[in-house]
Amino acid sequence: MSATDLEVGQVVATRDIHLSRESLVRYAGASGDFNPIHYRDDVATAVGLPGVLAHGMLTMGQAVQPVVDWLGDPGRVVDYQVRFTRPVVVDADAGADVTVEAKVGQLPGDGTARIDLTVSFGGQTVLAKAQVVVRLP
């Protein structure tokens, strides 16, 4: 896709992501973030959380993948930012289902596009100002 094929507001990718406790343990090992609130119910409860939470960085890392697949090259991502606004509680049995919608937020005309992500869990957004700046092919 080139900038001339895109318009602001256009949805370029969507994805449904299922997170299980296994996803959290896998991310803990891969990232080195072993904070127990991401795998121990007793610790999560003791610090006042509603349950075991997904790592914010796991949600951030998963949410950009539909954009990478749309671009066809991870090297085209030049800037990526999010604010973590709500936790994703991952039930031991049911897991958690997160949805991502990626749409064109801005086309500055310099060969890049700002893609805005809407990342939702349980009907509420969990990331704010989730923006990916990409170099267009």
Binding site: S23, G29, S31, L58, G61, Q65, V68, D69, P74, G75
Partner: peptide
């Protein structure tokens, strides 16, 4: 772990064909 399935993350030959020195880390 982050659901990055593009071949350049996993396959050295695919990464080199895309112009990278080796497998590419996710953003």
């Amino acid at each position: 772990a982050v659901g990055a399935t593009h071949p350049v993350h996993h396959d050295v030959e695919a990464a080199r064909a895309a112009g990278y020195a080796d497998v590419v880390a996710p953003p």
